[in-house]
Structures are given as structure tokens and as C-alpha cells.
Design a protein around this nucleic acid. Structure first.
Lengths: 200, 200
DNA sequence: TCGTTTATAATACGTTCGTACGTACTTATT
DNA sequence: AATAAGTACGTACGAACGTATTATAAACGA
């Protein structure tokens, strides 16, 4: 084992984590190398050693944020069976993840997607891939729930996934603006209500 | 009439309009004085003459964007009676306003709210005021629609307003990412569906 | 042990940022 | 006619940006 490379991997991860935290507040474009370096107490050129260009750092932050998101929201949901139970676990975990402020600026993805949605490039593509995967995951659970008769067949699974994601993103925004938890609980209710429509 | 001040007012408005257009793409924080000046073919110091500081320019852009939004979405809805008809007019006009790309980067407010929701200051406050007013307008129409029996009494009017706004914001994001109109039409359907629940 | 590789750092460079200042020119006021 | 007010522009400045270059110390492979 090369202890030098090992150390490098650790700092790479540390830098990316800090970059993700900062970018959740200021956005990936307003994030600067100096801010990340200062927050970690290392030199600016050390950040540059870990990620040669700013775009590399941005992509690294996205990868790290994705990893954190998966660990916080997606992985725990695997304890629930597919379909409605897992769907509920996903949305509940998502709202918890916002309420707990895992990222200081709310959801990393929501903030930066809205920042980069009109700016072509690798950063936007990486963010879009993440969103696509998330929506596909939601839609898959809706499909299972629908075939099991737990959720009404209309609207479409992808429409329902779109709707759920929309409510979650709005919860993130409202929570960041008001800094209290009522929008989160409101969203929890709304999602529960919208998934309840088979019971009628 | 003072023709000097008149000229100043015109340039102030021109500068603010251009600033709003640029900020809808890059965000108010990444927007620079030089970009705005160059886009208008005027000097950087002329921009500064119209808006002494960058924050002044940001606030000017918000005011101008609000004006455009009101003219494009809100004012036309007054032709419809309050309640469900006006609510439909508002959401339809909103989606049209996105599809037509009145702002090159989609909805000015959605982009910049997500940019500034974690950054205290006058800019964030101005954006938050705009959002609050918009949600209040939607909620009022829902209330009227509910008392008229056009829309079910539950969920709450403010919850329904929140939900509608969430869907619209998601439509803006999806449209910016994919650059086709299907998310907009999907959202149109979803909103119609969610407002139809009294008919059951 | 000696040369190579790697992480970290210090320093510097060219560019762009927001802002300040002085000036030319136009319009209004006296 | 003379002074004041206001717009537009050129220029300049310090700070911060991303990036490139170089140096130092530690860990590896031969």
C-alpha cells in the first residue's frame, strides 16, 4: 500500500466534501478555490493539487454530494419492500435530510440544478444525470406500487415521480427561506395525500 | 419635463431589463456589470451611472423582472372571474411564459430564489417578497374556488397554492434541462388533475 | 542507498471583478 | 450669459479570481 496515495485520496474526499457543503449555499459557480481552502485550513494550491481545475472540483463536489445523498436517503430505503413502502421511506428520508441540514444550504442537487439548468457543459450534464436517476428510482417504485394496486394507475408513474420531486424541491426552497419546519411537514402531508388516492 | 432625467429613466429600465435577462441564465450573483454593459453596447461606467452598486443593479433587475412577470402572467388573468377560472388562467399563462422563453433562462424568480435562499440580505428579501405575493395570489383564488364549491375544501388553500407553485417550478427546471415542451404539458395535465377533485 | 514519485505548499502571473474619480456633453435654472 | 444638475464615458485601482511554476518533505521502488 502506498501511504502517499492513501493520504491523497483522503484529502481529495475531504476537499470534495467541503466543496459540496459550500456549493450548497453559494452554488457551484460562485464557489471559489480560496473559500474551500480556507474552510479546511489548507493552502489554495493544495486544493489545486487535489483538483487541478475548478471544473474538476465542481465535478468532485457533485460526486461527493451524490455519495452523501445516497447514503442518507436511498440506502436506508432498501430496508423497505419495493412499491409504496419504499416510496414512503424515500420521501420521508428526503424530508428528514433537509430538516437535518445535511448540507448547510439545503439540498445540493436542487440548488445547483437550478443554477446550471441553462448553462451547457459537463457540470450541468452530471447534475442532470443525477436528477434523471433519482426520478427513475421514484418512478420504478410507483410502477411497483401501481401493479400491486397500492396506488391508482393514473396519472402515469413518471408523472407521479415528477410530482413528488416537485413537492420535495419546493419544500427545500421554503425551508431555506423561512428556516422553520412547517413547509416540510406540509409537504409530508401533501405527498401522503397524493399517494392515498387508491383508497377512494 | 426634464429631458435629462427622462433619458436616465429609459436607460435605467433598459439596463434593468438586460440585467434580468442575463441573471435568469447565470443567476444574480454570477451576473457582472461588464456583461450587462457589453450586451447593451454601452460602457461599464454607464451601467454604474444607472445603478451605483451591484446590489442596486440586482434589486433593479428583480423589480424589472417582476414587472415583466406581472404583465405576462398576472394582468391577463384579470379577464377571468376569480376562483377556478382565474386560477386556470394564471397557471396556463405561467406555463406559456416559460414555453415562450420570456426570459432566456426560464423563470427569473425560480432560478434566483434557489440561488439566494440561503444567503441573507436585501436581494433574498426582495425575492422572497415576490414569492410570498405570488403564493398569496394563488391561495386567494383557491379560497374563492373552494367557497364556490369548484374545488374540494381539503387540502388547505395555501397547501394547494404551494403544490401548484411546486409543479410550476419543476416544469421550469425540466424545460430548461431538456429543452422540449413535454414537461410543460405534463405539468398542465397534473395541475388540471389536481384541481378536478371536486368532480368525483 | 539512491533516484523517483507523490502530497503539500509558497509564490507569481494575467485576467476580471466591483468601485472610485475626473471629464466631456447635454439640459435646466437663474 | 452664467451656473447648476445629470448622463455617459474613459481610466485607474485594489482585491480576488483561476491557473501555472517551482520548491520542500515524505514515502516508495530499485
Amino acid at each position: 500500500m502506498d501511504r502517499r496515495r492513501e493520504r491523497g485520496e483522503i484529502t481529495r474526499k475531504t476537499v470534495a466534501r467541503q466543496a459540496a457543503a459550500i456549493a450548497s449555499v453559494t452554488g457551484l459557480s460562485s464557489m471559489t478555490l480560496a473559500t474551500v481552502a480556507e474552510a479546511l485550513g489548507i493552502s489554495k494550491s493544495s486544493v489545486q493539487a487535489a483538483y487541478p481545475t475548478k471544473q474538476d472540483l465542481q465535478l468532485g463536489a457533485i460526486a461527493q454530494a451524490t455519495e452523501i445523498f445516497v447514503a442518507q436517503v436511498i440506502t436506508p430505503s432498501f430496508e423497505q419492500p419495493e412499491g409504496l413502502p419504499r416510496l414512503r421511506a424515500l420521501t420521508d428520508a428526503w424530508l428528514d435530510y433537509i430538516a437535518q441540514r445535511v448540507f448547510p444550504g439545503g439540498c445540493f442537487m436542487v440548488s445547483n440544478l437550478n443554477d446550471f439548468d441553462s448553462r451547457p457543459g459537463e457540470v450541468r450534464d452530471a447534475l442532470a444525470r443525477g436528477r434523471k436517476g433519482w426520478l427513475a428510482l421514484l418512478a420504478r417504485q410507483v410502477v411497483v406500487a401501481q401493479t400491486a394496486g397500492e396506488v391508482a394507475a393514473h396519472p402515469t408513474a413518471s408523472m407521479r415521480a415528477f410530482e413528488i420531486d416537485a413537492l420535495l424541491a419546493a419544500a427545500n426552497l421554503a425551508h431555506n427561506l423561512t428556516d422553520d419546519n412547517t413547509p416540510i411537514e406540509t409537504t409530508r402531508e401533501l405527498i401522503a395525500l397524493r399517494l392515498d388516492d387508491v383508497a377512494r
